[in-house]
């Protein structure tokens, strides 16, 4: 395996008494898409800022592409693209002028800048409106322009903070497609988000943040195995149910728990896929089966299950 491109050891950041990030160990391999997950204020953005040298760690060490962001921030920032949460641009300038400023700050020559800007605008499909003032752009277009802005420096790593927040489903979908496109181009991507389904759709590995600590990390599948214990969740909707159905379902072999989730809707948590048994039970019980499916194990479940088990009070969250 290659050397990790991002390597953090015992990374810690305190703001006064408040520990924003505590003893973080993180290794991201080249070419992978790593997702940082967690509720707001769990320490994702602080971690990103430390990786870029924009805030100094209280303790611990970081290496990004072999550089120390504390001492060599310019080397790191020349190779790592960062798309902040809710990115902003100069409204009175056009998209192209905004990108030219970024190119100048990166010290690119005029020709290189022009070529890269054209390529970046094409990639995010904004070339047709590149001459328009950014003030007229929609939120989704701004986010895509943000990706183009990051691409101007031809980065080896891209760090995206909440890239789909505030976008409509169409905009979010476009941004996610872009991320997959960049992954295919061989760029390592670090993605912070609390929108689990989207993260699941694009990430190879995820790390779950809770109160400044990374409490779990691995592939979605591995996390599911660990947190959910290989459990299945069967969702069942039936009409004309007799009272006795719930006990009947819970007596099925392998069923762990049956909960009533609404009118005629039950969810069964089980050790195995017992759809066939459940269907038989409903029909034999004299009711009509309307819907029956088994939920794919999603990050949502892992997340909810994990955080149901830890208490939520007593700690102060900051943005």
């Amino acid at each position: 395996m290659d050397d990790p491109v991002i390597l953090a050891r015992s990374l810690t950041k305190h703001y006064g008494d408040f520990a924003a990030v505590e003893q973080l160990n993180l290794a991201v391999q080249p070419g992978e898409v790593f997702g940082l997950l967690g509720p707001n204020g769990a320490g994702k953005t602080t971690t990103i800022l430390m990786l870029l040298g924009l805030t100094e760690p209280t303790a611990g060490s970081v290496r990004v592409l072999g550089f120390d962001p504390v001492r060599q921030p310019l080397h790191v920032k020349a190779r790592v693209g960062y798309l902040p949460d809710q990115v902003g641009f100069y409204n009175e300038l056009t998209a192209r002028e905004n990108l030219i400023y970024t190119a100048k700050l990166n010290g690119l020559s005029r020709q290189t800048a022009a070529a890269r800007i054209a390529a970046a605008l094409e990639r995010v499909d904004l070339q047709a409106v590149a001459h328009k003032r950014v003030g007229t752009y929609s939120r989704g277009m701004l986010q895509r322009l943000g990706v183009a802005d990051v691409l101007v420096k031809d980065p080896q790593i891209i760090i995206l903070d909440e890239p789909t927040q505030g976008l409509d489903p169409q905009g979010a979908h476009e941004v996610l497609a872009l991320i997959l496109d960049l992954k295919r181009a061989g760029i390592t991507i670090l993605l912070a988000s609390h929108l689990l389904q989207q993260v699941q759709a694009v990430c190879d590995r995820v790390g779950l943040f809770h109160r400044g600590r990374m409490v779990l990390d691995g592939t979605v599948e591995a996390l599911a195995q660990r947190v959910l214990g290989g459990a299945y969740r069967v969702r069942l909707e039936a009409a004309g149910l007799p009272e006795a159905l719930a006990p009947m379902l819970s007596s099925l072999p392998g069923a762990l728990q049956v909960s009533h989730a609404g009118a005629g809707v039950y969810t069964i948590e089980a050790r195995r896929d017992l759809r066939a048994d459940a269907a038989r039970a409903v029909v034999n019980g004299g009711a009509s089966l309307l819907q029956l499916d088994v939920e794919a194990r999603s990050l949502d479940d892992i997340y909810t299950r994990y955080f149901r088990e830890v208490d939520h009070d007593g700690q102060r969250y900051t943005g």
């Binding site: 870029l52 924009l54 921030p73 310019l74 080397h75 920032k77 020349a78 790592v80 693209g81 960062y82 798309l83 902040p84 809710q86 990115v87 902003g88 641009f89 100069y90 409204n91 970024t102 700050l105 990166n106 010290g107 943000g146 802005d149 420096k153």
Partner: peptide, 14 residues
């Protein structure tokens, strides 16, 4: 307020 500050400082400048 324009949310350009963090984007600017993420460029290779001090």
């Amino acid at each position: 307020n324009r949310r350009t500050l963090s984007r600017l400082l993420a460029q290779p400048i001090y």
